[in-house]
């Protein structure tokens, strides 16, 4: 297990429920500086919720989240926005603004936060677009982009303010193998070339194995296992094996909780 006592982001004893459903109970995670950390788990374990908690789009019921030693629950809106400028986030669907073109989407944070002259903004935006290989698509509208391209533009936008921490929410979902390979390489390249830290939420085990330095597997609101990809694939835990090897049945049951099959077919459950 990874030592969770010090790191760039520290999550301690986190509890979070939505309605009556407990999503996290006593979650502890430590995200180290300069590394690519993957957060994995079966669908519906609250991986995206965790990202929203880390960035305080949601507030935990209990427990603390420290970013660089700062308890984010205690920040007022101004300080929170200041902290968020250190984050870049890539949403599942890219979340590009649909009424402006690719260039303006990437320029958006610059225009909102800085008073840079247009010439400089152009320079910065083209550099970022070049880094994701889409300088030629600068004049296209978001609706004209494929899923993979939209995600690359969103990545350029997430990088444009030079963040310290890049967060990827399911970056590989629904991509063809070529686009997926491109994104995998970009995640690694951005992390190492820019000296940033990356958090990656995904359930694509193969891709994570090639890109991450360490991974957390979340199940039932807790960390079920953590370690490097090799450590995880050689584990003895049934749950981790089921997840890493994509087995249909195991500790995570194939069947959702239901009454007895035979009884239900015979209509006896109604009585």
């Amino acid at each position: 297990m990874i030592d969770s006592s010090k790191g760039l982001i520290e999550i301690r004893d986190l509890d979070y429920s939505r309605g009556h459903r407990e999503i996290f109970k006593g979650l502890n995670i430590s995200i180290e500086r300069g590394k690519v950390t993957a957060i994995m788990g079966p669908s519906g374990t609250g991986k995206t919720t965790l990202l929203r908690l880390i960035t305080r789009q949601l507030v935990p019921d209990h427990g603390t989240i420290l970013v660089d030693g700062i308890d984010i629950a205690k920040l007022n809106q101004r300080d929170l926005y200041k902290l968020r400028r250190r984050f870049g986030m890539l949403f599942q669907n890219g979340a590009l603004l649909t009424d402006i073109n690719v260039f303006e989407n990437v320029a958006f944070p610059l225009r909102e936060h800085t008073r840079l002259p247009n010439r400089l903004i152009r320079h910065v935006v083209l550099t970022k677009l070049h880094a994701v290989g889409l300088r030629g698509a600068a004049d296209m509208m978001p609706a004209e982009l494929s899923g993979g391209m939209a995600r690359r533009v969103a990545l350029a936008r997430a990088m444009v303010m030079d963040p310290d921490i890049l967060i990827y929410d399911e970056p590989f979902v629904g991509l063809d193998p070529i686009s997926m390979g491109v994104i995998v390489r970009l995640v690694r390249k951005m992390n190492d070339a820019l000296g940033i830290s990356s958090i990656l939420v995904s359930h694509d085990v193969q891709e994570i194995a090639t890109v991450s330095d360490c991974s957390y597997l979340i199940s039932d609101g807790k960390v079920a296992a953590s370690g490097s990809p090799d450590e995880l694939s050689n584990t003895s835990s049934e749950l981790v094996r089921q997840f890493m090897h994509g087995m249909a049945d195991g500790p995570v049951a194939f069947h959702f909780a239901a009454p007895n099959y035979a009884e239900q077919l015979l209509g006896r459950d109604v009585e």
């Binding site: 926005y81 968020r84 400028r85 870049g88 949403f91 979340a95 649909t98 958006f108 944070p109 936060h113």
Partner: peptide, 16 residues
């Protein structure tokens, strides 16, 4: 904009 996370994306870019 809300359904496609554009508002959340703005929040994350520290834009209200």
């Amino acid at each position: 904009m809300k359904a496609t996370d554009q508002l959340s994306a703005m929040e994350m870019m520290a834009i209200n």
